[in-house]
Design a protein around this nucleic acid. Structure first.
Length: 911
RNA sequence: GGGCGCUUAGCUCAGCCGGUCCAGAGCGCCUGCCUUACAAGCAGGAGGUCGCUGGUUCGAAUCCAGCAGCGCCCACCA
């Protein structure tokens, strides 16, 4: 006997083992060579930083649904699992651990530190894969990869060297985004925009003596920013949001076409606090119409200033250390100050010297490190870059010509705009954890070489004094190769041949630029084709306050916790049913019990319906459906026909990634139609010796089989368990996971049966409503009279069903004797119901109800009459709609008449 | 400064290429039921001016414009 309540823990582990041992998850190149049609998904490899949360739960459930669906359709479905070494993020985590021990990575040294990180990632890596398995992910576990695996590292080297050979990778000194806490360069994408209320300070720079005439001329020409202070000296006013950078100013710039300042170009200003003289130059980048039209130039600490300096030949003076502390290039008073302290000190000093012309509040962008949220400091340094423009072209084309399509569609433009405005990618990181840059420099001749294999001697001079670049590569520099590196690239493997390009990528929009876009570029460059055809960017899992789930906020939910509480199926169903296309999903992390109740309830219902069916089907052989066609009753034909709708809809919804839609269709079909109505209508037939038992058993087995198949991608465990126990499955040759996906069987579609059964449903619902309204307990059977309509005949022989579902004792097709007090109603087809309720009926309430009903119907028909009286409506609206309106009006009027009669009658009773 | 998304029942969300969904689901709530599949259930029910304003139309939750609130992305304007 199966337990009454579904116990996930008891079956999930067993089923999981069965799937894995059966090898049902895997696929090989041979399957494709043998003519199979591949379907490939590569997992967005989770960071090994920490274990997974619900966001991953959603992401991977979606992928699993797609893979299971395709697998059942007969495709050679392959889902590659794996993890990402997540350079900066993982290094940070391990460094934090060390800090707790009072140590830094430098105390350990590079080798020991990296060793330590490996220990960490091996632990979390395994736990992550364990989490994925626990929620039922049908990945090919034998193919699990890690971005720092030997093979993948070879791919990284290969692509680096190749790009280097083609001059698509270069090294240069530029202003990059620098995290003064992580002490590394960041890419543009890793510097996240944030906004802050800051100040815009206006600072006076005294003019170097000898340019008074030019200053006067500028003043004459309308330069408000040039003026003469009481001390007799001329000053320029410049503005900045970061006063501390003025210590590194090496010039002041104006627009060459600005008539106000023409005379001043070539002059010089005194840099306050530093005591240096800096030249005034002209540069087209300066906008005459912004601020004073005069800009201080800090080449070492601002990207555009760097460009100006380069064009104007200004000096570059770095005044900060890598930790963003003022260095020895800054005046003594500021040395050793953190940049923010320095800012305050500079402002105070300027105030002291009366050189502060003013301050405005100013809201401006403050980029922050995407890993530690520290304010990024633009910093001049030598880094490696990838030239992106040439790589972007084919990637852009592939979205424009539809080879890669995004869902929801709106992401297409976001993607394309990023591609159009692509900037070079800074790929070197001053970290220890990651792929070390494969470039060596000869200590003797200085030659620099990018190598696929570690070189033993200099190719130029033969020296063995080679030193490898100490930096590592951006973590995304390995993940952008993922779709083909997992198949053994750069070797020409059978797997690549069979499984590249893949098909669907499901991921979060946050990494559209970081990863998705770059994978498409790498795919084109290395393989000549985009790695997938469709990109589904699903929503983010948030907590009830709308915050993204994260470790630092402590609002993350460990999928394993949910699995333990309600089971993997419940987890999956809950997130899928809550996931509109691309819409975020909110879950209460503090109340998992109710947050996942929808899934738990539904799965349990399925379990119980299955249990009941198994009991009812018993051990006797089941007659195949085709052999009982002649014996099918109305409810049989109805449910079989409804099943075809469900199959059709599920395919449509899955095709469009509408997981919520799939869930809705299946909930309506399984719960709303199969469990609530079909099972209830056939219960009496299923009893031993029940009427039409064989046909009912056939239909029951058939429909439940299809329900299991349709639900399997979403709810794999319970369906597998039930299906395995289900008798009468034709052609069963393995577990459900590889059973054939249902197809629509047009021969089972039966609109007539659907209409007829709908009528019965309406009738029963109406009677139930009346019972409730008049407080007639279910212990008491009531007689039913009905007249009119054409469906009365359907009640023939349905006594048992009516008794069960609505506690109707007898049915007469004639009205009750005149003068009988009745509850009543009219069905949509005009059938009138009467339930004589002598002694029970509340006349007052029934009268009130009649009045209400008359009001409602009168209002309705007035509206319809008005519409039909409208010439525009009658002439312009489609004929079918007008016709329908006429019919509705007629039936409305008819009902109105009846209710009026009834009211008259009721008023006669007992008055 | 640009661009995008969202605003529908107490909560989380469907519906939105205009007219059968006189506005739907799940969770919660109310009422009645331990009806031998299921109380993680069954039956019935309450609850919504579909953000605001205006427009287009015979007809708008559904299309357009403006406004408000929320969220996200992009941006070197000092």
């Amino acid at each position: 006997m199966l337990p009454r309540t579904f116990d996930p823990a008891a079956v999930e582990a067993r089923i999981l083992r069965m799937w894995e041992e059966g090898g049902w998850f895997g696929a090989s190149a041979g399957d494709v060579e043998a003519g199979g049609d591949p379907y490939v998904i590569v997992i967005p490899p989770p960071n090994v930083t920490a274990v997974l949360h619900m966001g991953h739960g959603l992401n991977n459930t979606i992928q699993d649904v797609l893979v299971r669906w395709r697998r059942m359709q007969g495709r050679v479905a392959l889902w590659i699992p794996g993890t990402d070494h997540a350079g900066i993020a993982t290094q940070n985590v391990v460094e934090r651990r060390l800090a707790a021990e009072g140590r830094t990575r430098h105390d350990l040294g590079r080798e020991a530190f990296v060793e330590r990180v490996w220990e960490h990632v091996e632990l979390t890596g395994d736990r992550i894969l364990g989490q994925l398995k626990a929620i039922g992910c049908s990945c090919d576990w034998t193919r699990a990869r890690f971005t720092l695996d030997e093979g993948l590292s070879r791919a990284v080297r290969e692509i680096f060297v190749r790009l280097h050979e083609r001059d698509l990778v270069y090294r240069g000194e530029y202003i990059i985004n620098w995290c003064p806490r992580c002490l590394t360069a960041l890419s543009n994408e890793e510097a996240e925009g944030s906004e802050a209320d800051g100040s815009l300070w206006h600072i006076r720079y005294p003019l170097v003596a000898g340019h008074e005439e030019a200053a006067a001329a500028a003043r004459e020409a309308g330069a408000a920013a040039v003026d003469r202070l009481p001390d007799g000296r001329w000053h320029l006013t410049v503005s900045t949001t970061r006063p501390e950078t003025m210590l590194g100013d090496t010039g002041v710039a104006v627009n060459p076409g600005d008539p106000r300042y023409g005379a001043l170009v070539g002059a010089a200003a005194h840099l306050p606090l530093a005591g240096r003289a800096i030249p005034i130059v002209a540069d087209p980048h300066v906008r005459a119409d912004f601020g004073t039209g005069m800009v201080k130039v800090t080449p070492a600490h601002d990207p555009s200033d760097f460009e100006i300096a380069r064009r104007a030949g200004l000096e570059v003076l770095n005044v900060m250390t890598e930790r963003a502390v003022m260095n020895d290039n800054a005046p003594a008073a500021f040395r050793g100050l953190d940049r923010f302290d320095a800012r305050r000190a500079v402002v105070a000093a300027l105030e002291q010297e009366e050189l502060l012309a003013g301050r405005d509040v100013h809201r401006h962008a403050v980029p922050r490190c995407y890993r530690c949220d520290t304010v990024v400091e633009p910093r001049l340094s030598e880094q490696w870059f990838v030239r992106m423009k040439p790589l972007a072209e084919p990637a852009l084309a592939s979205s424009r010509d539809g080879a890669v399509a995004f869902a929801p569609r709106r992401w297409t433009r976001v993607y394309e705009q990023w591609m159009e405005n692509i900037r070079d990618w800074c790929i070197s990181r001053q970290l220890w954890w990651g792929h070390r840059i494969p470039v060596w420099t000869c200590g003797d001749c200085g030659r620099e070489m990018a190598c696929r294999e570690d070189p033993s001697a200099c190719g130029e001079c033969g020296s063995v004094a080679l030193e490898q670049d100490p930096d590592v590569l951006d973590t995304w520099f390995s993940s952008w190769l993922w779709p083909f590196s997992v198949f053994g690239w750069p070797e020409e493997t059978d797997d690549l041949e069979a499984f590249y390009p893949g098909h669907t990528l499901a991921t979060a929009p946050e990494i559209l630029f970081f990863w998705v876009a770059r994978m498409i570029m790498a795919g084109h460059h290395a393989m000549g084709a985009a790695p997938f055809a469709r990109v589904y960017l699903h929503g983010t899992v948030r907590d009830i306050q709308g915050r993204k789930m994260s470790k630092s906020l402590g609002n993350g939910v460990d999928p394993l916790e949910v699995v333990e509480l309600h089971g993997a199926d419940a987890l999956r169903w809950t997130v899928l049913a809550g996931a509109g296309v691309g819409a975020d999903i909110r879950l209460d992390h503090e109340d998992l019990e109710s947050a996942f109740a929808p899934g738990r309830n539904f799965v349990n219902k399925l379990w119980n319906a299955g249990r009941f069916a198994l009991m009812s089907l018993g051990d006797d052989p089941i007659v195949p459906l085709r052999d009982v066609k002649g014996d099918l009753r109305l409810e049989d034909r109805w449910i079989l026909s409804r099943q075809q709708h469900a199959v059709r809809r599920v395919d449509e919804e899955l095709e469009a990634f509408r997981m919520q839609g799939v869930a809705e269709v299946l909930r309506d079909f399984f719960r709303g139609e199969f469990a609530d109505w079909y099972l209830e209508s056939v219960k009496h037939r299923l009893r031993p010796g029940g009427p039409g038992r064989e046909a009912a058993r056939s239909v029951l087995a058939h429909v439940l089989d299809r329900i299991c198949r349709l639900l399997h991608p979403m709810i794999p465990f319970v369906t597998e368990e039930l299906w395995g126990l289900l008798p009468g499955i034709e052609g069963r040759s393995g577990p459900l996971i590889v059973a054939r996906w249902p197809a629509v069987d047009p021969g089972l579609e039966d609109p007539g049966a659907e209409d007829a059964f709908e009528w019965l449903r309406e009738l029963i619902a109406r009677v139930r409503g009346m019972r409730k309204e008049y407080g007639v307990g279910e212990g008491r059977e009531i007689p039913l009279h009905l007249t009119g309509g054409e469906n009365g005949g359907l009640l023939e022989g349905r006594g048992e069903m009516l008794r069960r579902l609505a506690r109707i004792g007898s049915v007469a097709t004639a009205p009750p004797p005149p003068g009988t007090a009745c509850a009543g109603g009219v069905l949509r087809d005009g059938t009138e119901l009467f339930v004589p309720l002598e002694g029970i009926i509340d006349l007052e309430r029934e009268r009130a109800r009649a009045v209400r009903e008359i009001d409602r119907l009168a209002g309705l028909s007035r509206g319809m009459e008005a519409r039909l009286a409208n010439r525009n409506f009658v002439t312009r609206a489609p004929a079918a709609i007008v016709e329908r309106e006429r019919e509705k009006l007629a039936s409305c009027k008819l009902q109105l008449t009846k209710w009026n009669e009834k009211l008259t009658f009721l008023e006669g009773v007992g008055r």
